[in-house]
Design a protein around this nucleic acid. Sequence first.
DNA 1: CCTCTTAGATGACAATCATAATCTAAACGA
DNA 2: TCGTTTAGATTATGATTGTCATCTAAGAGG
Lengths: 190, 190
Amino acid sequence: MPRKSQEEKARSRARIVEVAAAMFRENGIATTGVADLMKAAGLTHGGFYRHFASKDDLVAAAISHSVSTALAELRGAEEPGARAKALKRYIDRYLSEEHVGNPRDGCPLAALGPEAPRSSPQVSKALDEGSAEAVRVLAAAMDGRREAASSLMATLLGSVVMARMASSHQCRKRILLDGQRAALGIVESG
Amino acid sequence: MPRKSQEEKARSRARIVEVAAAMFRENGIATTGVADLMKAAGLTHGGFYRHFASKDDLVAAAISHSVSTALAELRGAEEPGARAKALKRYIDRYLSEEHVGNPRDGCPLAALGPEAPRSSPQVSKALDEGSAEAVRVLAAAMDGRREAASSLMATLLGSVVMARMASSHQCRKRILLDGQRAALGIVESG
DNA sequence: CCTCTTAGATGACAATCATAATCTAAACGA
DNA sequence: TCGTTTAGATTATGATTGTCATCTAAGAGG
Protein backbone atom coordinates (compact mmCIF):
# COMPACT_ATOMS: atom_id res chain seq x y z
CA MET A 1 0.00 0.00 0.00
CA PRO A 2 1.64 3.15 -1.16
CA ARG A 3 0.93 6.81 -0.86
CA LYS A 4 -1.82 8.34 1.32
CA SER A 5 -3.36 11.79 1.18
CA GLN A 6 -1.92 14.60 3.27
CA GLU A 7 -4.93 14.44 5.50
CA GLU A 8 -4.34 10.78 6.14
CA LYS A 9 -0.67 11.42 6.73
CA ALA A 10 -1.56 13.86 9.46
CA ARG A 11 -3.92 11.27 10.92
CA SER A 12 -1.15 8.68 10.84
CA ARG A 13 1.24 11.01 12.56
CA ALA A 14 -1.27 11.82 15.27
CA ARG A 15 -1.94 8.13 15.76
CA ILE A 16 1.77 7.37 16.08
CA VAL A 17 2.23 10.13 18.65
CA GLU A 18 -0.72 8.97 20.69
CA VAL A 19 0.26 5.31 20.64
CA ALA A 20 3.85 6.24 21.44
CA ALA A 21 2.83 8.41 24.37
CA ALA A 22 0.89 5.50 25.82
CA MET A 23 3.60 2.91 25.21
CA PHE A 24 6.43 5.05 26.54
CA ARG A 25 4.52 5.72 29.74
CA GLU A 26 3.69 2.06 30.15
CA ASN A 27 6.93 0.35 29.13
CA GLY A 28 9.53 3.09 29.30
CA ILE A 29 11.31 4.87 26.49
CA ALA A 30 14.36 2.68 26.02
CA THR A 31 12.40 -0.57 26.08
CA THR A 32 9.83 0.52 23.51
CA GLY A 33 11.09 -0.14 20.00
CA VAL A 34 10.18 1.80 16.90
CA ALA A 35 8.94 -1.38 15.21
CA ASP A 36 6.58 -2.36 18.05
CA LEU A 37 5.31 1.14 18.21
CA MET A 38 4.51 1.37 14.51
CA LYS A 39 2.81 -2.00 14.59
CA ALA A 40 0.62 -0.79 17.44
CA ALA A 41 -0.27 2.21 15.30
CA GLY A 42 -1.29 -0.13 12.48
CA LEU A 43 1.75 0.55 10.29
CA THR A 44 5.09 -1.05 9.52
CA HIS A 45 8.36 0.31 10.82
CA GLY A 46 9.57 1.42 7.39
CA GLY A 47 7.44 4.51 7.14
CA PHE A 48 8.53 5.89 10.46
CA TYR A 49 11.15 8.30 9.15
CA ARG A 50 8.64 10.00 6.88
CA HIS A 51 7.15 11.44 10.06
CA PHE A 52 10.04 11.86 12.46
CA ALA A 53 13.74 12.55 12.09
CA SER A 54 14.62 10.09 14.84
CA LYS A 55 13.17 8.19 17.76
CA ASP A 56 14.10 11.02 20.10
CA ASP A 57 12.14 13.37 17.89
CA LEU A 58 9.05 11.24 18.45
CA VAL A 59 9.74 10.94 22.16
CA ALA A 60 9.79 14.72 22.50
CA ALA A 61 6.57 15.04 20.51
CA ALA A 62 4.89 12.33 22.57
CA ILE A 63 5.84 14.01 25.83
CA SER A 64 4.63 17.43 24.73
CA HIS A 65 1.38 15.94 23.49
CA SER A 66 0.64 13.94 26.62
CA VAL A 67 1.50 16.83 28.93
CA SER A 68 -0.92 19.07 27.08
CA THR A 69 -3.78 16.61 27.19
CA ALA A 70 -3.07 15.82 30.84
CA LEU A 71 -3.42 19.48 31.74
CA ALA A 72 -6.41 20.15 29.48
CA GLU A 73 -9.10 19.50 32.06
CA LEU A 74 -7.39 21.82 34.50
CA ARG A 75 -7.06 24.62 31.98
CA GLY A 76 -10.77 24.80 31.23
CA ALA A 77 -12.14 26.57 34.28
CA GLU A 78 -12.21 30.36 34.29
CA GLU A 79 -13.92 31.76 37.39
CA PRO A 80 -12.24 31.16 40.76
CA GLY A 81 -15.08 28.99 42.02
CA ALA A 82 -14.94 26.60 39.10
CA ARG A 83 -11.16 26.65 39.30
CA ALA A 84 -11.04 25.45 42.88
CA LYS A 85 -13.52 22.74 42.10
CA ALA A 86 -11.59 21.59 39.03
CA LEU A 87 -8.38 21.54 41.03
CA LYS A 88 -9.85 19.36 43.74
CA ARG A 89 -11.23 16.95 41.18
CA TYR A 90 -7.85 16.91 39.47
CA ILE A 91 -6.06 16.04 42.71
CA ASP A 92 -8.60 13.37 43.43
CA ARG A 93 -8.10 11.76 40.05
CA TYR A 94 -4.34 12.12 40.22
CA LEU A 95 -4.10 10.39 43.57
CA SER A 96 -6.46 7.57 42.60
CA GLU A 97 -5.71 3.87 42.35
CA GLU A 98 -6.83 4.02 38.76
CA HIS A 99 -4.10 6.52 37.93
CA VAL A 100 -1.50 4.53 39.82
CA GLY A 101 -2.50 1.33 38.07
CA ASN A 102 -2.65 2.81 34.57
CA PRO A 103 0.49 4.73 33.73
CA ARG A 104 -0.30 4.36 30.02
CA ASP A 105 -2.81 7.19 30.10
CA GLY A 106 -1.62 8.92 33.24
CA CYS A 107 0.75 11.73 34.03
CA PRO A 108 3.78 11.60 31.72
CA LEU A 109 5.97 13.47 34.19
CA ALA A 110 5.41 10.85 36.89
CA ALA A 111 6.13 8.06 34.42
CA LEU A 112 9.04 9.53 32.46
CA GLY A 113 10.37 12.45 34.52
CA PRO A 114 13.18 10.52 36.14
CA GLU A 115 14.55 9.66 32.71
CA ALA A 116 15.17 13.37 32.11
CA PRO A 117 18.78 13.54 33.28
CA ARG A 118 19.75 10.63 31.02
CA SER A 119 17.86 11.74 27.93
CA SER A 120 18.86 13.55 24.75
CA PRO A 121 18.63 17.35 24.71
CA GLN A 122 15.40 17.17 22.72
CA VAL A 123 13.67 14.92 25.23
CA SER A 124 15.13 16.80 28.14
CA LYS A 125 13.74 20.04 26.74
CA ALA A 126 10.27 18.55 26.32
CA LEU A 127 10.25 17.40 29.94
CA ASP A 128 11.58 20.74 31.10
CA GLU A 129 8.89 22.69 29.28
CA GLY A 130 6.23 20.19 30.28
CA SER A 131 6.99 20.46 33.98
CA ALA A 132 7.20 24.24 33.80
CA GLU A 133 3.82 24.36 32.12
CA ALA A 134 2.36 22.04 34.73
CA VAL A 135 3.47 24.31 37.55
CA ARG A 136 2.10 27.32 35.67
CA VAL A 137 -1.30 25.70 35.16
CA LEU A 138 -1.44 24.53 38.77
CA ALA A 139 -0.52 27.99 39.98
CA ALA A 140 -3.24 29.52 37.80
CA ALA A 141 -5.74 27.22 39.48
CA MET A 142 -4.48 28.35 42.90
CA ASP A 143 -4.86 32.11 42.55
CA GLY A 144 -1.30 32.45 41.31
CA ARG A 145 0.39 30.98 44.36
CA ARG A 146 3.38 29.61 42.50
CA GLU A 147 5.22 28.40 45.57
CA ALA A 148 2.24 26.40 46.80
CA ALA A 149 1.75 25.05 43.28
CA SER A 150 5.32 23.78 43.24
CA SER A 151 4.86 22.04 46.58
CA LEU A 152 1.59 20.57 45.43
CA MET A 153 3.14 19.17 42.31
CA ALA A 154 5.99 17.63 44.29
CA THR A 155 3.47 15.97 46.58
CA LEU A 156 1.44 14.66 43.66
CA LEU A 157 4.44 13.33 41.76
CA GLY A 158 6.07 11.81 44.81
CA SER A 159 2.91 10.14 46.03
CA VAL A 160 2.24 8.46 42.69
CA VAL A 161 5.84 7.29 42.38
CA MET A 162 5.65 5.88 45.89
CA ALA A 163 2.29 4.22 45.30
CA ARG A 164 3.63 2.60 42.14
CA MET A 165 6.50 1.10 44.07
CA ALA A 166 4.16 -0.47 46.62
CA SER A 167 3.03 -3.93 45.64
CA SER A 168 0.44 -4.32 48.39
CA HIS A 169 -2.95 -2.91 47.69
CA GLN A 170 -3.35 -1.72 51.26
CA CYS A 171 -0.04 0.08 51.23
CA ARG A 172 -0.91 1.86 48.00
CA LYS A 173 -4.19 3.01 49.45
CA ARG A 174 -2.53 4.38 52.56
CA ILE A 175 0.04 6.26 50.53
CA LEU A 176 -2.64 7.80 48.35
CA LEU A 177 -4.68 8.84 51.35
CA ASP A 178 -1.68 10.45 52.99
CA GLY A 179 -0.98 12.23 49.71
CA GLN A 180 -4.52 13.53 49.49
CA ARG A 181 -4.39 14.90 53.00
CA ALA A 182 -1.10 16.64 52.30
CA ALA A 183 -2.28 17.97 48.93
CA LEU A 184 -5.50 19.42 50.30
CA GLY A 185 -3.51 20.93 53.13
CA ILE A 186 -1.33 22.75 50.63
CA VAL A 187 -4.30 23.94 48.57
CA GLU A 188 -6.10 25.34 51.57
CA SER A 189 -3.04 26.85 53.21
CA GLY A 190 -3.52 30.17 51.32
CA MET B 1 43.68 -14.89 34.44
CA PRO B 2 41.79 -17.69 36.03
CA ARG B 3 40.59 -18.53 39.45
CA LYS B 4 40.57 -16.14 42.44
CA SER B 5 40.25 -16.88 46.14
CA GLN B 6 36.83 -16.86 47.77
CA GLU B 7 37.69 -13.66 49.49
CA GLU B 8 38.50 -12.04 46.21
CA LYS B 9 35.32 -13.39 44.69
CA ALA B 10 33.32 -11.67 47.40
CA ARG B 11 35.24 -8.49 46.71
CA SER B 12 34.49 -8.79 43.01
CA ARG B 13 30.82 -9.28 43.68
CA ALA B 14 30.69 -6.28 45.97
CA ARG B 15 32.47 -4.18 43.36
CA ILE B 16 30.03 -5.25 40.66
CA VAL B 17 27.04 -4.40 42.84
CA GLU B 18 28.44 -1.00 43.73
CA VAL B 19 29.38 -0.09 40.18
CA ALA B 20 26.02 -1.34 38.95
CA ALA B 21 24.12 0.68 41.53
CA ALA B 22 25.91 3.81 40.36
CA MET B 23 25.49 3.12 36.65
CA PHE B 24 21.83 2.17 36.90
CA ARG B 25 21.05 5.36 38.76
CA GLU B 26 23.00 7.45 36.29
CA ASN B 27 22.05 5.86 32.96
CA GLY B 28 18.96 3.84 33.73
CA ILE B 29 18.55 0.10 33.94
CA ALA B 30 17.65 -0.77 30.38
CA THR B 31 20.41 1.34 28.85
CA THR B 32 23.18 -0.07 31.03
CA GLY B 33 24.57 -3.24 29.52
CA VAL B 34 26.14 -6.13 31.36
CA ALA B 35 29.34 -5.77 29.35
CA ASP B 36 29.78 -2.05 30.11
CA LEU B 37 29.06 -2.70 33.71
CA MET B 38 31.62 -5.46 34.06
CA LYS B 39 34.22 -3.40 32.28
CA ALA B 40 33.59 -0.56 34.74
CA ALA B 41 34.13 -3.07 37.54
CA GLY B 42 37.48 -4.05 36.01
CA LEU B 43 36.30 -7.41 34.67
CA THR B 44 35.10 -8.89 31.41
CA HIS B 45 31.51 -9.80 30.73
CA GLY B 46 32.16 -13.54 30.73
CA GLY B 47 32.42 -13.97 34.46
CA PHE B 48 29.17 -12.23 35.20
CA TYR B 49 27.06 -15.35 35.56
CA ARG B 50 29.35 -16.78 38.23
CA HIS B 51 27.94 -14.07 40.48
CA PHE B 52 24.37 -13.48 39.33
CA ALA B 53 21.70 -15.65 37.75
CA SER B 54 20.60 -12.85 35.44
CA LYS B 55 20.78 -9.12 34.92
CA ASP B 56 17.57 -8.67 36.88
CA ASP B 57 19.16 -10.52 39.76
CA LEU B 58 21.93 -7.92 39.84
CA VAL B 59 19.46 -5.07 39.47
CA ALA B 60 17.60 -6.24 42.54
CA ALA B 61 20.82 -6.60 44.51
CA ALA B 62 22.00 -3.16 43.41
CA ILE B 63 18.76 -1.53 44.49
CA SER B 64 18.74 -3.20 47.88
CA HIS B 65 22.34 -2.25 48.44
CA SER B 66 21.94 1.39 47.47
CA VAL B 67 18.79 1.83 49.52
CA SER B 68 20.55 0.50 52.58
CA THR B 69 23.55 2.77 52.23
CA ALA B 70 21.32 5.75 51.46
CA LEU B 71 19.46 5.24 54.72
CA ALA B 72 22.54 4.44 56.81
CA GLU B 73 23.22 7.97 57.99
CA LEU B 74 19.63 8.35 59.10
CA ARG B 75 19.61 5.09 61.03
CA GLY B 76 22.53 6.01 63.24
CA ALA B 77 20.99 8.42 65.71
CA GLU B 78 19.38 7.05 68.87
CA GLU B 79 18.22 9.80 71.19
CA PRO B 80 15.37 12.06 70.00
CA GLY B 81 17.56 15.14 69.94
CA ALA B 82 20.18 13.60 67.68
CA ARG B 83 17.41 12.08 65.58
CA ALA B 84 15.81 15.40 64.80
CA LYS B 85 19.17 16.87 63.93
CA ALA B 86 20.07 13.96 61.65
CA LEU B 87 16.70 14.21 59.93
CA LYS B 88 17.15 17.90 59.20
CA ARG B 89 20.61 17.31 57.81
CA TYR B 90 19.25 14.46 55.72
CA ILE B 91 16.53 16.67 54.24
CA ASP B 92 19.05 19.38 53.54
CA ARG B 93 21.33 17.00 51.69
CA TYR B 94 18.45 15.37 49.87
CA LEU B 95 17.14 18.66 48.55
CA SER B 96 20.55 19.97 47.52
CA GLU B 97 21.78 20.83 44.05
CA GLU B 98 24.54 18.33 44.54
CA HIS B 99 22.04 15.52 44.97
CA VAL B 100 20.00 16.70 42.00
CA GLY B 101 23.09 16.90 39.83
CA ASN B 102 24.55 13.54 40.86
CA PRO B 103 22.00 10.76 40.57
CA ARG B 104 24.82 8.23 40.44
CA ASP B 105 25.30 8.29 44.19
CA GLY B 106 21.95 9.70 45.16
CA CYS B 107 18.61 8.25 46.17
CA PRO B 108 17.87 5.10 44.15
CA LEU B 109 14.14 5.47 44.61
CA ALA B 110 14.11 8.89 42.99
CA ALA B 111 16.24 7.63 40.12
CA LEU B 112 14.68 4.20 39.52
CA GLY B 113 11.32 4.21 41.29
CA PRO B 114 9.26 5.05 38.23
CA GLU B 115 10.66 1.97 36.49
CA ALA B 116 8.96 -0.19 39.12
CA PRO B 117 5.69 -0.87 37.28
CA ARG B 118 7.56 -2.03 34.20
CA SER B 119 10.17 -4.18 35.95
CA SER B 120 10.49 -7.87 36.61
CA PRO B 121 9.03 -9.26 39.84
CA GLN B 122 12.49 -9.43 41.38
CA VAL B 123 13.24 -5.78 40.73
CA SER B 124 9.75 -4.74 41.66
CA LYS B 125 10.11 -6.48 44.98
CA ALA B 126 13.41 -4.77 45.71
CA LEU B 127 11.86 -1.36 45.07
CA ASP B 128 8.82 -2.26 47.13
CA GLU B 129 10.88 -3.31 50.12
CA GLY B 130 13.25 -0.39 49.66
CA SER B 131 10.51 2.20 49.75
CA ALA B 132 8.81 0.54 52.69
CA GLU B 133 12.08 0.58 54.60
CA ALA B 134 12.62 4.22 53.73
CA VAL B 135 9.25 5.19 55.15
CA ARG B 136 9.96 3.12 58.27
CA VAL B 137 13.32 4.80 58.85
CA LEU B 138 11.88 8.25 58.24
CA ALA B 139 9.03 7.53 60.64
CA ALA B 140 11.50 6.34 63.26
CA ALA B 141 13.29 9.68 62.95
CA MET B 142 9.96 11.50 63.42
CA ASP B 143 8.79 9.96 66.66
CA GLY B 144 6.87 7.27 64.83
CA ARG B 145 4.59 9.59 62.87
CA ARG B 146 4.17 7.28 59.91
CA GLU B 147 1.67 9.46 58.09
CA ALA B 148 3.91 12.49 58.24
CA ALA B 149 6.85 10.35 57.16
CA SER B 150 4.94 9.25 54.08
CA SER B 151 4.11 12.85 53.18
CA LEU B 152 7.70 13.87 53.76
CA MET B 153 9.00 11.17 51.50
CA ALA B 154 6.56 12.14 48.76
CA THR B 155 7.72 15.74 49.01
CA LEU B 156 11.37 14.71 48.89
CA LEU B 157 10.95 12.36 45.94
CA GLY B 158 8.72 14.72 43.99
CA SER B 159 10.96 17.73 44.53
CA VAL B 160 14.05 15.92 43.29
CA VAL B 161 12.24 14.55 40.25
CA MET B 162 10.98 18.05 39.47
CA ALA B 163 14.36 19.64 39.98
CA ARG B 164 15.95 17.09 37.66
CA MET B 165 13.49 17.99 34.93
CA ALA B 166 14.35 21.68 35.18
CA SER B 167 17.18 22.68 32.90
CA SER B 168 17.60 26.18 34.29
CA HIS B 169 19.75 26.56 37.33
CA GLN B 170 17.46 29.21 38.80
CA CYS B 171 14.40 27.07 38.37
CA ARG B 172 16.08 24.13 40.10
CA LYS B 173 17.04 26.31 43.01
CA ARG B 174 13.51 27.60 43.41
CA ILE B 175 12.06 24.12 43.34
CA LEU B 176 14.51 22.92 45.96
CA LEU B 177 13.76 25.87 48.21
CA ASP B 178 10.02 25.29 47.93
CA GLY B 179 10.65 21.65 48.73
CA GLN B 180 12.68 22.52 51.80
CA ARG B 181 9.99 24.80 53.14
CA ALA B 182 7.34 22.15 52.60
CA ALA B 183 9.50 19.40 54.11
CA LEU B 184 10.35 21.37 57.24
CA GLY B 185 6.69 22.25 57.57
CA ILE B 186 5.81 18.57 57.61
CA VAL B 187 8.53 17.70 60.12
CA GLU B 188 7.46 20.43 62.53
CA SER B 189 3.73 19.86 62.15
CA GLY B 190 3.71 17.29 64.97
C1' DC C 1 51.30 -33.50 45.90
C1' DC C 2 47.44 -34.63 43.35
C1' DT C 3 42.67 -34.11 42.05
C1' DC C 4 38.57 -31.54 41.71
C1' DT C 5 36.41 -27.34 41.50
C1' DT C 6 35.75 -22.83 39.74
C1' DA C 7 36.63 -17.26 38.83
C1' DG C 8 37.29 -15.10 35.21
C1' DA C 9 38.69 -14.54 30.00
C1' DT C 10 37.55 -15.40 25.29
C1' DG C 11 34.45 -15.96 21.88
C1' DA C 12 30.04 -17.15 19.90
C1' DC C 13 24.83 -17.16 19.86
C1' DA C 14 20.36 -15.50 18.46
C1' DA C 15 17.54 -11.41 19.21
C1' DT C 16 16.67 -6.91 19.02
C1' DC C 17 17.65 -2.32 17.99
C1' DA C 18 17.64 2.40 15.30
C1' DT C 19 18.34 3.78 10.86
C1' DA C 20 18.45 3.59 5.84
C1' DA C 21 17.82 2.04 0.73
C1' DT C 22 14.73 0.45 -2.42
C1' DC C 23 10.31 -0.19 -4.36
C1' DT C 24 5.40 0.75 -5.71
C1' DA C 25 1.35 2.86 -6.40
C1' DA C 26 -1.43 6.55 -5.40
C1' DA C 27 -1.87 11.62 -4.46
C1' DC C 28 -0.48 15.84 -6.12
C1' DG C 29 0.94 20.14 -9.22
C1' DA C 30 0.81 21.51 -13.72
C1' DT D 1 -3.94 14.13 -18.16
C1' DC D 2 0.96 13.50 -17.44
C1' DG D 3 5.02 13.72 -14.79
C1' DT D 4 6.68 14.46 -10.16
C1' DT D 5 6.49 13.60 -5.50
C1' DT D 6 5.95 10.73 -1.59
C1' DA D 7 3.39 7.47 2.36
C1' DG D 8 4.10 3.44 3.54
C1' DA D 9 5.84 -1.68 2.76
C1' DT D 10 9.72 -4.60 2.32
C1' DT D 11 14.15 -5.69 3.12
C1' DA D 12 18.94 -4.77 4.56
C1' DT D 13 22.58 -3.11 7.79
C1' DG D 14 25.56 -2.71 11.47
C1' DA D 15 25.60 -2.26 16.24
C1' DT D 16 24.34 -3.88 20.68
C1' DT D 17 22.03 -6.88 23.62
C1' DG D 18 21.59 -10.86 27.42
C1' DT D 19 23.09 -15.34 27.84
C1' DC D 20 25.94 -19.33 27.33
C1' DA D 21 29.95 -22.89 26.01
C1' DT D 22 34.47 -23.39 26.27
C1' DC D 23 39.01 -22.76 27.94
C1' DT D 24 42.60 -21.39 31.40
C1' DA D 25 45.00 -21.71 35.43
C1' DA D 26 44.90 -21.21 40.09
C1' DG D 27 42.52 -22.05 44.71
C1' DA D 28 40.65 -25.65 47.82
C1' DG D 29 40.36 -30.28 49.90
C1' DG D 30 42.36 -34.51 50.61
